[in-house]
Each structure stands twice: as C-alpha cells, then as structure tokens.
C-alpha cells in the first residue's frame, strides 16, 4: 500500500482536499498545470453570498 496521495488540479477543490489530507498527516502531491495554484476562484472579484474577496 502506497501511503502518498496524488491530487490533480490546484483550484479550490484541489487545495481544500490537500489541506484536509495534510492536516491528517498524509503526504500529498498536488500537481497544477499553471504556474501557481488558485484556479478560477483566484480570478473572481468577490464571492456570493457574503460578497467577500475571492482571494
């Protein structure tokens, strides 16, 4: 049994899954095709329904 976990995609879903597994003490490999993580959410201005900043 390999104990590492691969996550493909560094947007909000990939980042959340990485954090949860990391907090559990697992070794995560997060692979993202762009030069940094953040995905579509990083392009948004504000998010509903609180109108908080996306970043």
């Amino acid at each position: 049994m390999n104990k590492d976990i691969l996550i493909i995609g560094g947007g909000i879903a990939g980042m959340q899954a990485s954090l949860d597994l990391g907090d559990m003490g697992m070794q995560v490999h997060l692979v993202e095709k762009l030069t940094c993580i953040g995905g579509k959410m990083a392009q948004l201005d504000k998010t509903f329904p609180t109108n908080d900043c996306a970043i």
Binding site: N2, I5, G9, I12, A13, Q16, A17, M26, T47
Partner: peptide
C-alpha cells in the same frame, strides 16, 4: 473526483466535495 470536474458547482459545494474526496482517499490509504 471533486468539484467542477464532477459537475458544475459553486465554491461551498466544491469545498464540501473536496473534503469528502479527501476522506475517501484517506480511507483507501
């Protein structure tokens, strides 16, 4: 799979699915 890779969904749903997928992966390990 989690988030919009599974189907169109907003941020709260993507985040909830991400935590679920993390749980499924942890179960596997």
């Amino acid at each position: 799979v989690c988030g919009c890779a599974q189907a169109p969904m907003d941020i709260p749903e993507s985040v909830a699915q991400a935590s679920s997928a993390a749980s499924r992966a942890a179960e596997t390990i």
